[in-house]
Each structure stands twice: as structure tokens, then as C-alpha cells.
Design a protein around this nucleic acid. Structure first.
Lengths: 236, 236
DNA sequence: GCCCTCGCTTGACGCACGTCAAGGCAGCGT
DNA sequence: ACGCTGCCTTGACGTGCGTCAAGCGAGGGC
């Protein structure tokens, strides 16, 4: 059970400004955990004893219905923290969490030491408030997207938000996750994703070869994102 | 422009524990506003100069697409605060806000005095963090609901969450808002709402007369909420 | 009384997506 | 080589829900 170096905590957004004493206190209540792909970190409804910070790999937060349909709420990569809110309300984790790559290394910060430091140091409180706010705004956006925009629009937005390389007039992006997971993240099925990419290929808008997707007409995608139906002067 | 009595602030969740000095500071940066039904409080994208606390009436937060489709994010009634997150990030209101009843009275708390007190008093920070967390959890629930559950399930859950009066074996609830607004809140259209109520009436599950809805078989609705398809031993 | 507006209800119709089922194609172990 | 097992793709089909359009009933003004 590897413990956490107090120095390591300096890198975390919440604890960057802390003095050495407080940092050592947090470090004492923390440890590093390593998970394999597919391993569960916590389940929805269980008691939140800790929040987490991703050092390496990827964690997916999701909910699921009794029949197995799942909605991915969030994907966390290196440098991001999560589950602070659950710790702060001290009620229950509202989602499930599993690692989606191997190995995934995390810092697990114990609830009690975190709450103590939070009460004593206004700077931590400030940092936590800020990060909660950012998350809140992002969620508001997702509520909006999931209910009013089509799958096409959600996918277009996702692709345009990826880091892209130019290639002549085209943009080329690389999917950072398998297509079936991307589909789940966008609240749809792999079949729907596949069909949308097919339609774009037929229309000459975008081509996909494996995880590499070439956007021939990014402006069309931009119009889709804005939810303005594209004037169909396109060849069949 | 009526100013705010420092005593009034004692009633607000964020400021209940404050000392008189801090409260007077907040009061100086605040005022009471009265809106008519339909009046705008702020628009998405504008700069957040204040957050609000509802004293009376109702405020609706929503987003809308260029073509006019709207998604209601939240409805606030007396005793609730909103837009703290926008103030804290200091970027832009992520939603629109309008009053939906007349009169709607609000306390408008100026951003600068709020931020100052937040930095100085850890108790305020704690209260704000707690309220943000609650909101975050509720939003996570909505992301989940909007994407994985059917309209029927969302409506069932909404009805079961209303305060109900018993009447024999039946439960009777009163819709606190017009049906078209309810439909929007649940991310659907009035037609869809109408049809669902019709189906329940035909199945003998629930009857609606205006805003009064009688639930003859609450257990069926409970099953719907759990997303377990109801075994159809029901008469046509 | 009449007419207007608004909220609600119904029907007809279309489309986006989910589900089920059947391949194709890669990688990988034996 | 073989057959696994996953991931992706495609087709056929069903359905939830939005859109359009019509009609209904309850106010409210004149």
C-alpha cells in the first residue's frame, strides 16, 4: 500500500497553495492505487470515503439501469480530480467508476483529512469551489445537449473539440477511445455512430479509417453544431 | 431601488452563520428586485454581476437553440438561490433566466461583495460548497434521466415526487405548473405529455382532470420509474 | 350575445435511434 | 494453418417522440 509523498501533492490543483504542514496532513490520509482496465473503483450508492486524482490512465464515471443500459457521465484522464462533491456531501457516490486503461494510477485522498483541511484553509475552499463550478457549467451544457441536439450534432461537436492536425484543406483527428465507448459517451449505440460516419462519408464531409477521421468540410460540421440544418447543395 | 435589510439576509442559507459586520457588507451590495411574469432576469452569455435568491414567485432557467427549441434546466421557487456558480467562475451566465409568475421578488446579491466575504469567512465557503454539491448531484441525475429513461419514466418520477394527498387507495397530486411548462421541464412537448396521460387513463393507471391528477395504481408508476417494463396483465 | 386568444387534446405522418441478427475483419493463442 | 474472441459495420424492423394541422373548451373584452 504505497503512501503519498507530501511533495507530490504540490502538483494537485486543490493543494498547490498549501503550506507544508497541511500538505503533510493530507499526505498521511492518502495513498496511491493502481488499477487494471475494467477494475471498479467504487459503485453508485456506496459511502464516499475518498476522492481521487488521476496520475495516469483513464477512469470512466457512469450510471446504469437494471437492464444494463449505461450512460457515461464523465471521462477523467491524467491531471483531473473527481468525486470531491460526493465526499463533501458525505452521502453516497452518485455514479459508478471503473478504470478504462491499464495501468491506471490514482491518488486516493481520504475524506476526513480533506474535510479538515478544507475547513481550515480558505484557499483550498476557493480552489474546490472553482473546480465544482467548472464542472457544474459543463454538466448544464450536457443536459442541454442530450435533450435538444441530435446525435449528429453531438458527434460533430465532439470531433471539432479534439486536437486536430491540418492536411491540406482537411482536418485530421484521432479518436482517443474505441468507437463503442465514444458512442456510449455521446449517449448512443455503436450502430448509430457507425451509420452517422457512413452518412458523412457518402456526403463527402468526413472519412474514417479506424481511429483516424479526416474532416473534409469542417464548416459543414460547424453548421451542424450550431444546429442549423445544412443547405443541401451537396451531391448525393 | 429598495435596499436589503441586513436582518433579512439571516434567512438565506449562505449567510445564516455570518456575523453582523459581514452581513451588513453583503446587504450594502444587494437589493430587492420585483419582476412580472415573462420578464427576463439575465441572458445566457452576459456577464454575471450578481447571484439571486427567490423570496416569492418562480424563476425558470433554460437554454434555447437558434430555432427556438428550449430545454428547461431548472425551476427555482421561494427559498432557493441560483447563479452562484456563474458569479464564482466570473465568466458568463450559462443559461437564460425569466420569471414565470407575477410578482416574483428576488434578492440580488452583488458579485464583488459576495466574493469578498467568501474569501474571508470559511463558513460561507462551506455553505456555498455544500449547495453547489447538491446541485451537481441533481444535475448528474438529470443527465442520466434525459438520456436513458423514457418520457414515461421521467413523468412518473416527477408525479411521485410531488406532495400527494391520499384518497382511498388512490393518490391525488396537483401540478404546480401548467402542462406545457411541465412538458418543457421534462424535455418534451405538450403533445407527448397529453398522450402519455391518455395512455395511463386508458390503462386505468391514472386520471387527470386539469391540474389534478389521480394515481389509481402508484405501484405501476413505481415500476415504470425503476425502468422495469410493467407486466401487461392489464385489461385493454 | 360574439369573437378572440390560449391552453389542451387528437390524429396523421415522418424521422431519428434503438434492437436484433448476420456478417467482415483484425489480432492472438494453439 | 486453424479457430477463437472483440470490434466494427450493415441491413431490416420497430417505436418513441417531434411536427403539422385541426378542433375543443374556458376565459375575457366588447
Amino acid at each position: 500500500m504505497p503512501t503519498v509523498d507530501a511533495e507530490t501533492l504540490r502538483g494537485l490543483p486543490h493543494f498547490g497553495g498549501l503550506d507544508a504542514v497541511a500538505r503533510r496532513r493530507i499526505a498521511a490520509g492518502s495513498r496511491v492505487r493502481t488499477l487494471e482496465r475494467g477494475e471498479w473503483l467504487f459503485r453508485r450508492g456506496s459511502e464516499p470515503r475518498a476522492f481521487f486524482h488521476v496520475l495516469e490512465g483513464c477512469v470512466q464515471l457512469f450510471r446504469s439501469t437494471p437492464e444494463g443500459r449505461e450512460q457515461v457521465i464523465h471521462r477523467l484522464r491524467a491531471g483531473q480530480s473527481f468525486a470531491e462533491a460526493a465526499v463533501l456531501t458525505m452521502s453516497a457516490y452518485p455514479v459508478n467508476a471503473v478504470a478504462t486503461s491499464s495501468p491506471t494510477r490514482l491518488i486516493e485522498v481520504g475524506a476526513s483529512s480533506f474535510l479538515q483541511v478544507l475547513d481550515e484553509d480558505p484557499r483550498v475552499a476557493r480552489a474546490v469551489v472553482a473546480s465544482l463550478c467548472r464542472r457544474l457549467v459543463r454538466l448544464v451544457q450536457r443536459v442541454d445537449e442530450l435533450s435538444v441536439s441530435s446525435f449528429e450534432a453531438r458527434l460533430a461537436r465532439y470531433l471539432l473539440d479534439l486536437p486536430a492536425a491540418g492536411d491540406g484543406d482537411d482536418l485530421v483527428v484521432r479518436l482517443p477511445l474505441p468507437k463503442k465507448d465514444l458512442a456510449a459517451f455521446l449517449g448512443a449505440t455503436p450502430e448509430t455512430l457507425s451509420r452517422q460516419l457512413r452518412r458523412w462519408r457518402d456526403a463527402g464531409v468526413a472519412d474514417s479509417r479506424g481511429a483516424h477521421i479526416t474532416l473534409h468540410q469542417p464548416d459543414v460540421l460547424l453548421a451542424v453544431v450550431a444546429d442549423i440544418p445544412v443547405p443541401s447543395h451537396l451531391p448525393v
